[in-house]
Write a protein that binds this DNA or RNA. Structure first.
Lengths: 205, 205
DNA sequence: AAAATATTAGCTCGGTCGTGCTATAAAGGC
DNA sequence: GCCTTTATAGCACGACCGAGCTAATATTTT
């Protein structure tokens, strides 16, 4: 038998290389050659783990989605399983703030998310994943608003479905703008806008 | 002298070809060859009007910006120079709705806007234009909210600057989502979300 | 020790790219 | 009619691309 290599770990490492190249030079430069260089592998090695370029891209997008999802889930659990001591309002704000590019890590993730989302427009193989990410966001917004309303934090007259869409759009829009112009949208401003929106929801309209 | 050709018209025609190709197959396929084919010209002809590929791209993005801007300005004038008979509230909603992908034309423009905006992340030459577009959006939101407040349509306690950012983010986010999943975000829903936001602003919070 | 095989490495092909460069065609001034 | 200027057309080069394919390497099991 040959050298034992954990195939999933390798695939993830290669996906990380794709993300690094894409973050630095754009998705269009994430060629097999550049990615192999970035990962410190030969081009043939990369092709051993991915059938073709498309599979590499779809896997990488799912990897990005998984990474963001993991980060969100951590906060979501804290919110959805309150231990009594946690401030629901603050926990909600923290959860939603997790989507915003508040530090360099999340700024880079946001930029990558935007790149893949835009690419999904003309690359059919990426569309399912992009659609899933958007659906997941909407679902999470619905859960958050629904539970907040049940807990009495939001008025019962609220249209949860509509407000979920509005909240999701606000987060996506803020992320888009802050990713493009980080200087004009410092973390403080982003949190301020989010807080304002939550306050408005709380007040009923 | 040679055959007389209006150079600006030609440049715009070529830019239109870029937009067509980009809308159909993505910005990365807007090569000189594909664009020349789309425009019905030889590759050399295209290069006669554009020094290099970068200039073609920057010009096309500005052209797109100009086209969207023109459409907006038409509505903006109607709102900012009211003739007494116009309903300010409805005119405002119409103006803001002009940003949303409510029909096929605007859906395509939105997709192109998104593609260029995403590309601006890693293409320095596109950044100034992207930044301008975003700044213009914010400025317009500020004007609309400011005038609406002066006209008594919005509470005086409102933080215009903050609400402008929030409104701009909402529009960008809605556009992003509706462009990616047109089926899930039909025009009716988009207008509903916009109306809800304006109602909330009106109610003071 | 040897055989088996997952892994790595790299050559080759056809294709597309931007761009430098040259050649032809058209049209108004002399 | 000729000449200058502008527009159009297209060849040629080097670079990069994805993918098919083969060979070498390394390591665990037999």
């Amino acid at each position: 038998m040959p050298k034992i290599v954990d195939p999933v770990a390798r695939r993830r490492a290669v996906a990380q290389a794709v993300l690094s190249v894409a973050a630095r030079h754009g998705l269009e430069h994430a060629s097999l050659r550049n990615v192999a260089d970035e990962a410190g592998l030969a081009i043939g090695s990369v092709r051993h783990y991915f059938a073709d370029h498309d599979e590499l891209m779809t896997f990488t997008m799912r990897e990005l989605s998984r990474r963001i999802g993991d980060r969100i889930r951590t906060h979501a659990e804290r919110l959805l399983t309150p231990d009594g001591r946690t401030d629901r309002r603050a926990a909600t704000e923290e959860l939603l703030a997790e989507f915003l590019p508040l530090d360099e890590t999340r700024r880079q993730e946001s930029a990558l998310w935007l790149a893949f989302t835009a690419a999904a427009h003309t690359r059919p193989e990426l569309r399912p994943c992009a659609a899933e990410m958007q659906a997941d966001l909407h679902t999470l917004m619905t859960r958050v608003l629904h539970e907040a309303r049940c807990a009495g934090g939001l008025p019962g007259s609220m249209d949860v479905e509509l407000e979920s869409t509005r909240l999701a759009a606000l987060l996506d829009g803020l992320t888009l703008q802050a990713t493009l112009l980080p200087d004009r949208y410092p973390p403080k401003l982003l949190r301020q806008v989010l807080r304002r929106h939550l306050d408005a929801l709380r007040a009923g309209s």
